[in-house]
């Protein structure tokens, strides 16, 4: 067991946590619901984001044991579990992003720390620092083409790929866990900028924002 002190960063429900896009939603009227919209935007707020760093060989076994997913060792790849809820993404040769449904991250963090024991690794909860914007629809790829210099053509960006790249004038993690489903993992302070950029870029195709 490691000697790192652990604590649950997630506030309890009474505090009324706000997603990074709360202000954006409140500030401007969201586009009217449109069944014909080319792009559908949705924020997957309050998910559990963990950054896992260390050697792939050291981490692989623990990750498979705790999460049941193989650690993606190839660059720019993404491993998703059978339900499509939990995922691990390669960020750099010694860094991975684990994305789980909100509320699970502390349990997972404890389990991973326990499994890894005294190994040389780092595990940080970054859930409060970023959010996930999901892009769907027949024109989602067109919208991305306007926004990022990265090649999003199916031959260059198949399902199961994820990259950290330039997006508009900021950077984010762009990934495609399923066909016709793009996830944009943005920093909290850039969330409003990216959201408004997407609304503007997708306006010509018709855009809908799904809100819970």
């Amino acid at each position: 067991m490691s000697e790192i002190r652990e604590f649950d960063c997630r506030p309890n429900d009474q505090t009324g946590a706000e997603s990074p896009l709360a202000w954006s939603f409140q500030r401007g009227p969201a586009p009217a619901a449109d069944a014909q919209a080319g792009v559908t935007l949705r924020e997957s707020a309050f998910m559990g984001h963990l950054i896992l760093r260390g050697g792939a060989i050291v981490l692989d076994e623990a990750v498979r044991e705790v999460l049941g997913i193989n650690l993606p060792a190839r660059p720019n790849t993404l491993a998703v579990d059978a339900k499509g809820e939990r995922s691990i993404q390669w960020l750099s040769p010694d860094e991975w992003l684990i994305l789980v449904p909100g509320g699970e991250e502390f349990v997972l963090e404890k389990a991973l720390r326990h499994a890894l024991g005294q190994a040389h690794f780092s595990l940080v909860n970054v859930s409060g620092g970023q959010t996930v914007i999901t892009l769907r629809g027949p024109k989602a790829r067109e919208t991305l083409k306007k926004s990022t210099p990265y090649d999003v053509h199916p031959s260059a960006f198949p399902v199961g790929k994820g990259v950290t790249t330039i997006f508009a004038k900021t950077s984010l993690i762009l990934r495609q866990p399923q066909a016709d489903c793009w996830e944009l993992i943005v920093r909290r302070s850039f969330a409003d900028y990216v959201y408004r950029w997407l609304l503007d870029a997708a306006a010509e195709f018709g855009v809908t924002v799904e809100r819970r």
Binding site: P75, P93, P149, Y150, I166
Partner: peptide
Amino acid sequence: PYCEEHREEEE
């Protein structure tokens, strides 16, 4: 050489 692909100069 780490991402094993060509990336935009801006990055």
